[in-house]
Amino acid sequence: MDSIWFKLLGVVVSFIVAFTVGMTYMGLSRKITARVQNRKGPPFYQNFIDAMKLGSKTSAIHHGVMQHFGPAFLMVSSVMSLMIIPVLNNGMWFSNLNFHGDLIFLLYIMVFGPLGMALGAGQTGNPNSAIGVTRGLSQMVGFEIPWVMALVALMIQYHTTSIVDLMNIQVESGTWLIFSSPFAFIAAVLAMLGMFRYSPFDIVGAPTELASGPMSENGGKYLFTMMSSASVFAFAKLTLYVDLFLGGASNLIELLIKTFVIYMIPVLYGVVSPRYRTEQSIRYFWGWPTFFGLLAILYAVFF
């Protein structure tokens, strides 16, 4: 059971699960947004149809080498984050390729995709892409601070930098980290609002304002790659939150319920909010989320 082939098989299967679940969640969020706006909305499988259509586009444009690499970087980053996040906590299925210190590695690899995309968007020469990249990186400076603070608080409190260790602590003690370190959870969830880029933090890909920002020159198969990478990354992030704060999940049904509950926080906050400006967004993240992050670190050091 410990052979590397078994683990690799788990990685492939968890990629397929992540793709399917992520796409379905995004379709459901479109449906929920429509219902909030008193519309009927597209069917929940609309994103699969869109992906099929984008994949079957017959022409593509060429702006340079980096433009082709941009979406590939995004995909690589998503898959790598997924590979080191254990999907289930029973220690047998889908434990994936995690190792000691993977929480620190994860902090780096989650930024890698957007940076690669920034290079790719720069090559297209579209001014909207350049503005979108600037906004995205500024916003990242905003939400990375409470996010890192929340994770550092967990590392200090439990003396470990391994996701599996944190999951085992929750299984052994019987309390989820959402109860034993609540301030870290609050900071992490507020940072997640920026990570998912739904309103009011959709300043990067604002369709009417920036013509969808970094992806404005990418159509067809490039857009398909970005869409699937976003789905996989969304699933990876939601699973990470469930692993860290909600005690992991012992089977897929439990995982789906917990991730869906977490996913509803940015979606439902988004459908009732208009869009922030860039400086408002950064000010938001350096306000209460950072305060809760500091509180979490103080809590971890002194209690």
Binding site: A34, R39, I61, P207, L223
Partner: peptide, 22 residues
């Protein structure tokens, strides 16, 4: 596009740029 006639239920959606549009 909005709630009275809701073209999105047929899969019709606005695209931001010519590269993405059909």
């Amino acid at each position: 596009m909005t709630s009275r006639y809701d073209a999105e239920r047929l899969g019709v959606r606005g695209a931001a740029t010519p590269r993405q549009a059909d």
